[in-house]
């Protein structure tokens, strides 16, 4: 769902405003610092080398978006075509259909996934026995670690044409329902799959926020005679609002990314009109259509718009006094 990192503020505080401890390491000349930090620099080098080759090498590879790619010519010698791919993209209905699907699924996710995760977190938080709570947590975290291949196979086995649900319906003498491979049911299906797989894992951050709610507020509210519903509405929810807002903002920043694998696995069963998202559009254009340059342009377009959105989302989060995926 969301890539989110909240750096732990108490952990950082001692590092920054404690100059006495850091005093033996003053900033000297570059050469001096390089000599002093030789071992640390050596520790960084493999990681830096990887960054340069893979993500940054790939960033260079984006020149393909401005070229007419011929495999036998290679990236560098293939002829330039300027912005031709991007112009084509703007008028390509298949691309805009994929974009519309992506955005719709993202919004549905916000609408249904967030409340589900929050609700489950509230339920888990209210379990009094800690053994029961630990067991339930173990179970609901588990699907997060399963591959999408497995999750899709499980759903087919449960809801598919030869699945458990239709087996039961047949036994009861009812008509079968087509939930898998049905274009109309596709969006609800993927949202349910996301909730099944990630909802439990999504509770971790809410649970952490719930733990931090000031106990005295509950106590005071209870003294004033409020029941659990009023405590939930007037104490719990306002207290965790910053976390919920942060997650929402960051998810909005990622609105163009709904995950590739889940859709790659199921797109063919429902056809591109219902099942195509931007990432699958890029894949199928490149590796089935053989149109590498055009696919790279679509990917770059998504990457650039996505970068602006994520950057903006984090700026907004910082403005609200939260830490986003990166710290200032």
């Amino acid at each position: 769902m969301v890539i989110l990192a909240v750096e732990d503020p108490p952990a950082q505080q001692p590092a920054e405003p404690a100059p006495p401890a850091a005093a033996p390491r003053p900033a000297g000349t570059l050469r001096h610092r390089l000599r002093r930090d030789g071992v640390l620099v050596a520790l960084m080098i493999p990681g830096i080398a990887w960054l340069v080759v893979f993500p940054y090498g790939a960033a260079f590879g984006n020149v393909l978006a401005f070229k007419d790619y011929f495999p036998f010519l290679g990236v560098w010698t293939s002829p330039w075509v300027g912005l031709q791919h991007f112009e084509r993209l703007l008028g390509d209905d298949r691309f805009w259909n994929a974009t519309a699907n992506t955005v719709t699924i993202s919004l549905l996710q916000i609408l249904f996934f967030f409340p589900a995760a929050l609700g489950l977190a509230l339920l888990l938080h209210s379990i009094a026995g800690s053994t029961v709570k630990r067991w339930v947590q173990s179970v609901v975290y588990l699907p997060h670690f399963l591959s999408w291949v497995i999750v899709v196979a499980l759903f087919t086995q449960m809801l598919g044409g030869a699945g458990v649900l239709n087996g039961w319906l047949a036994q009861a003498g009812l008509d079968p329902v087509q939930l898998i491979g049905n274009a109309e049911m596709f969006k609800p299906l993927v949202i349910v799959q996301m909730i099944w797989k990630e909802c439990g894992w999504g509770t971790i951050i809410f649970l952490a926020a719930l733990m931090n709610v000031d106990e005295q507020l509950y106590e005071a509210a209870a003294m004033d005679g409020s029941g659990w519903w009023r405590r939930l509405w007037h104490v719990t929810l306002p207290s965790i609002r910053p976390v919920v807002m942060l997650l929402l903002i960051l998810k909005l920043g990622e609105i163009l990314s709904v995950g590739f694998e889940q859709f790659f696995l199921q797109r063919d069963a429902v056809g591109p009109e219902a099942g195509e998202v931007i990432d699958t559009f890029v894949f199928f254009t490149a590796f089935q259509g053989g149109d590498m340059g055009y696919a790279a342009a679509a990917g770059l377009f998504k990457g650039l718009v996505g970068a602006v959105l994520i950057y903006t989302a984090n700026k907004v989060a910082h403005r609200l006094g939260e830490q986003g995926v990166y710290t200032r």
């Binding site: 080759v53 893979f54 790939a58 960033a59 590879g61 393909l64 890029v282 894949f283 790279a296 990457g303």
Partner: peptide
């Protein structure tokens, strides 16, 4: 900006 699928394939 995570690495795109096509450029990463080229790498």
């Amino acid at each position: 900006m995570p690495a795109g699928m096509i450029p990463l394939f080229l790498v």
